[in-house]
Design a protein around this nucleic acid. Structure first.
Lengths: 142, 142
DNA sequence: CTCTTTCTCATGCAATTGCATCAAATTTGA
DNA sequence: TCAAATTTGATGCAATTGCATGAGAAAGAG
């Protein structure tokens, strides 16, 4: 097998750690504010970002790296809360489109207040502009 | 609230994405080889790295960012497989020590073959030495 | 001392995830 | 054209996780 160098292993540990820590921070803040989890936010934002506010489940899966069965059930819960709506896909009865509702847009905005602050506290406050750029570029190679 | 810049948000997305992708890759490889998950590996490695092969659950939790209740049950499963052993903590009957067994050490070694290869494929092969160093340094600020 | 608080770990129960598989619709290919 | 293969999404069931809480032991306060 290919043996990764000590430095590479160390990098993986740091990458893992940084991501988990930040994620845990964000989740804790959201929960404290009585808001749903980051997964819900990701879906809402992903939908909001496209002009028509609609995407197929498959597109969401791929964009967010979710499993098909998990997304299917997450959408069940979100639909039950009135945050998204399932609509038939014209011309293909297997497929569907997920559309964000006004209530979904509102929740996204409220969550962003907490979420954005957490990101800024963890990343923005610890890195200067150049470092953010540099880190971002390096990560984009992965 | 503190509004994070576009660049900072972008960085967070990349960080998240990179970590999730690599993790998913590793997990898939391990599963394909019929081996347990990364969490099991992390515990085994953490124990193996200390000279005596023993740590308290609390130390493992903090080192690996696990929840107390999750670790407690993960250790149940690992103990049932004979990979670790719970031993009483001298002088404090609340506490305990988790000790890695020979079988645990063996599994760690076998998992490393798969795990190490995946890390190298994803990180080592895509970054040169300087980039690994640079990325590692930047992440250590988080 | 002894009562309260804190610390360490476990556990019942509900929610979520993973796995395998299904059903329906479409596409492919002979 | 029609059976086989593929694509899309849903779901039953088992495993895992999250949450709240418990039990037992030690530490602290008076």
């Amino acid at each position: 097998m290919q043996r990764p160098s000590e430095a590479v292993v160390d990098l993986w540990i740091r990458l893992n750690c940084a991501q988990r820590r930040l994620r845990a921070n964000i989740e804790a803040d959201l929960k404290k504010a009585g808001l749903p989890s980051l997964d819900w936010y990701s879906v809402l934002l992903h939908l909001k970002r496209v002009e028509c506010g609609r995407l197929s489940p498959r597109e969401i899966e791929e964009g967010l790296l979710f499993e098909q069965y998990n997304l299917s059930r997450l959408l069940d819960r979100m639909e039950k809360e009135g945050l998204v709506r399932r609509i038939p896909y014209p011309g293909d009865k297997r497929r569907q489109l997920i559309e964000i509702t006004d209530k979904g847009r509102g929740l996204q905005k409220r969550m962003w207040l907490i979420y954005g602050a957490a990101i800024d506290r963890f990343l923005g406050a610890r890195l200067d502009e150049g470092q953010v750029e540099q880190l971002s570029t390096l990560l984009s190679r992965l």
